[in-house]
């Protein structure tokens, strides 16, 4: 790891001010992406600004039509939150599948979203539920937030403060994890709003990161059942192909994971 300067601000405003003063500053939340990348010398921030201890960034709250998960809340705290388990149990389940227990004790929802790894779990939940990403400057709709591999709508220095998840009539997540890393070889989140609208998002599958799957959305809107997807075929165009799975294999996984997610959602 190259030399760096560590800062621990106590407020969002102080963090943003430190960022603008740093030459090549980076925010650190759980550190479970940034620190490994710094150890490999693929990142060499002049300043590391720790958001993990900022109280206003931690916690889960019920809101009128859903829940608000603050950005520095760990995966473990989301997975075990009674508020999340009651309002959006599929999100708690998703959080319980990330990495391993020690990783879940450190990693945060805000860090995961800001990084937008193409195989991360949270982006699927945010996109499928039509959640809203709140930052220190604005609110960003899920459809506008994800911009391809490791890129988002966040501007330089912008801090995710919370994610607002609207309540769903039904929601489920299923993932085929990579057996070593536990990242999603493919993961699919299915969600049905109280008004009957259906949104489905897949992670780990596409060359462009998380994406919605219109063919599955249409089939589930007509008939919310795993069987409704039997006849749906998913194109392998634009899907990832690597030593872990071909594009065709991932195309099939999208369908199978969607069926399992629907079954889990009930």
């Amino acid at each position: 790891m190259y030399e760096t300067t560590y800062h621990r601000p106590s407020s969002i405003d102080e963090a943003a001010a430190l960022f603008s003063k740093g030459k090549e500053a980076k925010y650190l939340a759980g550190g479970h992406t940034l620190i490994p990348v710094m150890k490999q010398r693929l990142a060499s921030p002049s300043d590391v600004i720790d958001l993990g201890k900022i109280k206003e960034l931690i916690g889960v709250e019920p809101s009128g039509d859903g829940i608000v998960v603050k950005a520095a809340t760990t995966h473990y705290d989301v997975a075990t939150s009674d508020t999340v388990k009651k309002a959006l149990p599929a999100l708690a389940y998703l959080a319980s599948l990330i990495g391993d227990p020690a990783v879940r004790h450190r990693g945060t929802i805000g860090g995961s979203l800001a990084n937008n790894d193409p195989a991360a779990d949270y982006p699927a939940a945010v996109l499928a539920t039509g959640a809203t990403v709140k930052t220190n400057k604005r609110t960003i709709a899920a459809d506008e937030f994800f911009k391809g591999l490791f890129s988002t709508a966040l501007e330089d220095g912008e801090i995710i403060t919370a994610v607002s998840f609207p309540v769903q009539a039904k929601a489920g997540y299923a993932k085929f994890p990579h057996p070593a890393s536990r990242f999603a070889l493919t993961g699919v989140f299915v969600a049905k709003t109280p008004s009957g609208d259906v949104r489905v998002a897949a992670t780990g599958a596409s060359q462009n990161g998380v994406m919605r799957i219109p063919a599955i959305e249409a089939a589930l809107k007509a008939n919310w059942s795993a069987g409704a997807l039997d006849g749906v075929s998913i194109s392998a165009d634009g899907l990832l192909s690597d030593i872990h799975g071909s594009a065709d294999y991932r195309a099939n996984l999208i369908k199978v994971m969607a069926q399992r997610a629907v079954t889990a959602a009930g």
Binding site: Y6, I35, Y76, A102, V103, H105
Partner: peptide, 23 residues
Amino acid sequence: QCGACTVHIDGRAVKSCTVLAAQ
């Protein structure tokens, strides 16, 4: 990945190779 460095911080198991001392 391996967990050989696991310690508890404030009662929770974490991988101490992926935490800065300052954190």
